[in-house]
Design a protein around this nucleic acid. Structure first.
Lengths: 186, 186
DNA sequence: TCATACATGTAAGTTGTTACATGATTGC
DNA sequence: GCAATCATGTAACAACTTACATGTATGA
């Protein structure tokens, strides 16, 4: 799984860094292609520490809760670079809307159009989010090369959602062309 | 979750149908946007039966193992049509390659190119698969309307993977343009 | 004063994966 | 003779989600 490696990657990049900050980095960057909740992050950090891929120090604070800051070990670096070179399986998308459409012959055309326009709207909002939030993140690139890589990643996301938008629009057009022939719901 | 509803959808469409056949339908159709193993399918069928969304009969066979065939109940149909109208969250893709690229500044450009061309190859193969396998499945559409819906679903998949192909090619071109400046691995 | 940020975690539940298990039949 | 198909399942594990839990500080 990639969560542990994503964490190793960020720790390597940001060390020393707290779980809390890692969570924020996740949300501000790789969230759209590898989301993780704080629960998952804290637990995985614990596991990584147990396996000695990372180590942590507790920083005592008075005004705020104490925090643990993590750094990567040699063993962790080795694991990370090894994983980085490994070809992975194709990503899996579980796309509920497509499941719905597969059986949507049970719905009226109006109802299907509602699903699609809701989807379109959500994708649209998310795209704006991406454009804004992630451009932010780009500025932390420490070299041209790193920024080029990050741009590729961002691009992939933007193109994906733009594709989804276009697809939804096409689907809406197609359905409108058969609008009057909707079945009644069961 | 959509697995139970995908199953309800198929059962409604194909009843009476065995778990084994459902598995085959999954593989031949919605596999690329909602994969499921036989383990998951059998377990979920059990749950659906317990909740009285489906019922089953055991068909005794001599030459082959006995089988259970499932049909949907009224309760199941109600659940399905309700779910079909419900707007869902945006789909989540966990895209390991993008995680790798995010930290790929640690790799040489050659190594990154390898990852990308491997990916391109896998996507390409998968696309051919889709085109072939799923066209097959289309023929089971029982009306123009159903076929139009299924075409939309297929389209979404094909466009997604075509987008990924194009993106990978673009990425490869960009990286080639900086090829000689690769860092050495750690 | 009310929400948000800071900072961490536990507990319980749901989903998904992998390996193990059986055993006849059909086609190459 | 050997692999694949038919047909079902269990067991163990891995990964992810949601709700619960705490308590200060800061800004609108």
């Amino acid at each position: 799984m990639s969560l542990r490696h994503a964490l190793l990657g960020f720790i390597q990049m940001l060390e020393p860094v707290s779980g809390y900050d890692l969570k924020k980095w996740f949300q501000g960057s790789i969230n759209f292609y590898w989301p993780a909740t704080h629960t998952q992050i804290y637990r995985t950090l614990g596991e990584l520490a147990e396996q000695e891929f990372v180590r942590h120090k507790t920083i005592e604070q008075t005004t705020h809760p104490d925090k643990k800051v993590y750094s990567i070990t040699q063993k962790g670096k080795a694991e990370l670079t090894h994983w980085l070179k490994e070809p992975l399986k194709l990503p899996v998308t579980r796309h509920g809307l497509l499941v719905q459409l597969s059986f949507a012959d049970m719905l009226t055309t109006e109802e299907i159009l509602m699903l699609l326009s809701e989807y379109k709207h959500k994708v649209h909002t998310h795209l704006q989010f991406l454009n804004h939030d992630q451009q932010q993140f780009m500025q932390y690139g420490r070299s041209d090369r790193e920024r080029i890589l990050w741009e590729l990643v961002l691009d992939s996301g933007i193109e994906y959602y733009q594709g989804e938008l276009k697809w939804a629009e096409k689907a809406i057009r197609k359905l409108r062309s058969i609008k009057s022939r909707g079945k009644q719901p069961a």
